[in-house]
Nucleic acid binder design. Sequence first.
DNA 1: CTCGTGACTCCCG
DNA 2: TCGGGAGCCACGA
Length: 106
Amino acid sequence: MSSTPFTLRVINLIHSIPSGKVTTYGSIAAMAGNRRAARQVARILHSSSRKEHLPWHRVINREGRISLARQQGYEDQKELLENEGIIFDVSDKIDLNIFLWQGDQS
DNA sequence: CTCGTGACTCCCG
DNA sequence: TCGGGAGCCACGA
């Protein structure tokens, strides 16, 4: 199970995302120690969310946009986020200045 | 075991 | 200002 410390940290961080907030792959990767491992974060998230109850919907890309395609579950994620109070603008983007969660702001 | 791929992001020309 | 390339490495087949 426990692969690398990085993976464990990523999982832990995702669990730490407070409701009503979102974060980006890059932020998680950076907090986990490797800011270039954003892709791995996505991979881990996708894989883990299938087995565990991870708030995967709280993870979006750097544009403040959902990376998924409509057929992939875009609408589902959007609905989950709106249910937590996240606001999407006219471009379906989330204002990261308001909703971005960067750990506990060390 | 090896190989290909990817819910991404940053840097440099 | 904008575009393309490179980096990162876990997971599934």
